[in-house]
Amino acid sequence: MVASKKQASAPAEMLQQKTFKQRFMKVWNRDWQLFLLCLPALLYVAVFCYGPMYGIQIAFKDYVARKGIAGSEWVMFDNFIRFFNSPNFWILLRNTLTLSLYALIAGFPFPIFLALLLNQAANKKFRKIVQTVIYAPHFISVVVMCGMITLFFSYSTGIVNTLLTSFGFDRFFFMGSETAFPHLYVWSDIWQSTGWGTIIYIAALGSISQDQYEAAKIDGASKWKMLLYIDIPNLLPTIVTMFILRTGSIMSIGFQKAFLLQTSMNLGASEIISTYVYKVGLEQGQFDYSTAIGLFNNIINIILLLIVNKLSKKLSENGGLF
């Protein structure tokens, strides 16, 4: 029985081999125009996304511009060891994690909370106005955002300090304070991104079937009860997914805002890995060392993402992110 199966499969394999080229040509003849359409984007990605990956090797080298990327000498893990042993390492790691964890913990609940409230607001016009306004900050550029922060919190001229003094408090040098920096960073972020963050939750709430509300109404449930027993349970899968997405990007906290809010006096709290990579690399020209730090950060990111993806596959039947 087994033998006869083997015998039967042998010619079939040959048949497949014979047709492989034909099949390829058939597909190619059918799809070559689609490949042509893809080509420009594929080339761009090859040059600007995959191209730089070639340069990653300088993280393991003693890079000398004159010798080039390939010609520089290998030093293996020296750059990494130097980074791990430098006193900056723990400070950078602490600052990066403080900012991102604080932003995650403080910022995550706001869009959910706001979406739940908006969903219950029966007045369509009011709802529309609120939505239009709260989405707007999302489109403000980082530079303008940081400009606004420095303006409002300026020591001598900022409106916040003006208010503080009018209530009898002392002026506070927000921009030069290491303790104030994480709060400024995180709460301005919450101000800017909460509205935009509601979109996905509002959509999820909108897709809850009306039957559930009808049934609850017949049972005499109040709006508050409906929010508690219909809205929140229905929103839970979306919340979990969003939380997982956010945790996965904990180490990839943005360079721009921290960089723009830095002053010489708050550096102890505002220097994060990405700003350090910029300074060491492009300002001081230590290309190899800076690449090593960047690579370290990227690898931690990927590990986090893989862990989080695995967890999400376990938690929800919906599956992972990829």
């Binding site: 689609l34 191209g51 730089p52 990956m53 300088i58 492009l282």
Partner: peptide
Amino acid sequence: YFSGRKAIMIYLMITMYFGGGMVPTYLL
């Protein structure tokens, strides 16, 4: 039906999570 669909998606998705970083991109 596009035969390159899956491979191209993977090719693109990789760049979402992994890249050369600031300095190698600058050098390029």
